Amino acid sequence: MKSKLLGSIVSATLALTASATLAGPLEDRIAAGEPIRLGFAAAAPWAHPGENNEPLGFVNQITLDLLARMGHTEIEPVVTDWAGLIPSLMAGRVDVITGGMYILGSRCANIDFSEPIGQFGNAFIVPDGNPGGLQTYEDIKNAGVTMAAVAGYVNVEEALKVGIPESKIMQLPGTTEVLAAVKAGRAEIGAMTAVEAYDLAAKTDGIGHTDTNALPQWTFNWVAVGFHPEDDQFRADFNAAMPGYIGSDDMLSKVEQWDYLPSNVPGDDASMEWACANR
């Protein structure tokens, strides 16, 4: 009897230890009654703060809906600069990051991503009429002009890959600053995601945009939600909440106000693993 009792105690202890090992920092916070800290930058229409930092934008909407499907509705919004999102996640200041973050190999080396929630391309903002005739990174390199971009955006990597000198890339905190640089003539062109470029051009006199389809296929990317590597189980549960929601009429009806279109829904063959290895 003593042997059986001791064995039961050891088994129970091992089970508790294994459970504690599987639980990541976010699950520990939730178990302690703490809210999920949602980190995002002011990057409309992907994600941006409303009144009292209310999480707006289609990536935030999708993330909040998926968390709700998991049973999590206690959310604390945390707004930071785009370049501070990954450092904030790694330092434990936020639990989940959104904001339209592309799945890139350079980012996969530091954080873990959910499965894709959308596919998007990039574009440029230019003075009305595009006087320089600039449509691609190659055009920018050949013209020798200055390109403004958001620090930490994929556009910086893409420009360097094509051969644009770092001295010709003006890195700024956000798309508002990129727009200001182009309007003031400090940069001839501004690089960003296509949805941001189209949105800014529609709202700003004297500013137009290029066609995302003028860029090569390798510049098109998949967007996902970022998690701390220690929260692998929570990320798996988040992925498990996606089927039946991503691309559904319910989702599309909520996000169309932020220019997420049915054509942006990722295909069945899209995967985080492929994007990490190829982007």
Results as ranks from 00 to 15, higher is better:
238 F>I: 06
241 A>C: 09
27 E>A: 01
270 A>D: 12
152 G>T: 09
257 Q>I: 14
71 G>C: 06
212 T>F: 11
2 K>G: 11
5 L>T: 14
85 L>H: 07
221 N>C: 10
174 G>F: 07
252 L>N: 11
53 N>I: 01
134 L>H: 00
186 R>Q: 10
148 A>G: 04
128 D>T: 14
175 T>W: 05
201 A>F: 05
64 L>C: 14
240 A>R: 08
120 F>L: 10
89 L>I: 07
97 I>A: 12
265 V>M: 07
68 A>C: 02
125 I>Y: 00
251 M>D: 06
77 P>R: 03
151 A>H: 13
193 T>R: 03
87 P>K: 05
116 P>N: 13
273 E>D: 13
148 A>E: 00
65 D>T: 13
55 P>V: 05
12 A>E: 07
254 K>L: 12
210 T>I: 01
10 V>Y: 02
162 V>E: 10
185 G>N: 01
209 H>C: 01
266 P>L: 13
108 C>Q: 03
273 E>S: 12
266 P>G: 12
23 A>K: 07
110 N>I: 10
114 S>A: 11
248 S>C: 14
257 Q>L: 13
264 N>G: 14
21 T>C: 10
138 E>F: 06
123 A>T: 07
10 V>M: 02
91 A>R: 15
142 N>C: 08
236 A>M: 15
113 F>I: 05
161 K>L: 09
102 Y>K: 12
268 D>L: 14
128 D>F: 06
210 T>R: 01
146 T>M: 10
87 P>I: 01
17 T>H: 10
35 P>S: 04
208 G>S: 02
4 K>I: 15
163 G>V: 08
